[in-house]
Amino acid sequence: GVAEQLTPVLLDGLTEESLQLVSKLKDSSSSCAVDVSTVWWEAAGSKELCVVTACESSVSLWKPLASNGWEKIYTWQLREVPVIQIVPLPDTCNLVCIALGDLEIGEIRLLLYSSENDSFKQSLVRTGNIKAVLGLKDRRLVSSSRTVCEQQVEVVSLSETGRSRDGRTLMPPEETVLAFAEVEGLQDALVGTTAVNGVVVWNLRTGQLLKKMHVGYSYPASVCHQAYSDSGLLFVVLSHPHAKESESCGNPAFRVVAFNPKTARSTGVIFSSLPAGHTGRYLEGDVKDACAAAVLTSGAVAVWDLLLGRCTALLPPGPQGDWALVRWATTTACLLAGQRNGTVCLYQY
């Protein structure tokens, strides 16, 4: 369980100097890694940025060592329902949130350490047919769930000990909400993307559904990752797992779309595609600030500057196989890239 020493590498082509391997960890007990994330963890008076790795039946917390290696602190066992994803909670400490289920999310749990009885614990936050979940600032969690007749969109506040306090219901649209994103520059706003390629905007404070806008038919199944409010416009970062390649913009993994929420009109602003000569479609990815990273069908990881629409780094598949996961740490200075065998590489960006 102890990580390997760092091995700096230089990457080929456009990637030189932009991504540098800092350290690597390998969960030898992991059969099939499903997600990776980071969390601030405070123990014995020292607060450190730790790595969280998840496989289907367990979630492990890793602490950095002085030697650039990693030590596993604890593993939570989750044997009844498979883990689907880690749900990062921004600005929180000593709290890991996970989504579990079979084909779709059936429950959300918190993993934590209780100083009251000096033990690691887990607690159930909610159950249901959950379609989307996002950790919000100020230790809140928003999720959409669906029954045959109705959809519920709920924001839950979490206490320091993990127990959920009072929840607020947001007004649901008719269409199923499949992803959420917070809006930078507008504290009380939340956006979501729906199953029919719509973008919806809520007021988190009042629960009102403010606007429904359409992304357009050229990019089906768009998923929102991040939004920014500026100069009276709402800029939404969307990924396009099913986008068709076009001559004008190649094969866009991400697109920044400007919406005028007053009129619901929109226009594509910046396309983030692979540079000429590289192939691969978007499989999964992560966006933080103006940086986007994605795993591609080619098994590579690509990184873009969303403001320039330019691919700034490309990580080819490793000697042990394709990349499966890519996440930003709490800042875009650190990128985590994972393989299905449980290997996680930390890169400085």
Binding site: A189, G207, Q208, L209, K262, R265
Partner: peptide
């Protein structure tokens, strides 16, 4: 993008839509 593409832009869109939307 120009205003003609997107229609009239309001810097206070969030407050204005919150005042108009059903609660």
């Amino acid at each position: 993008c120009s205003e003609s593409d997107l229609g009239p832009i309001s810097l206070n869109w969030f407050e204005e839509l919150s005042a108009e939307a059903p609660s």
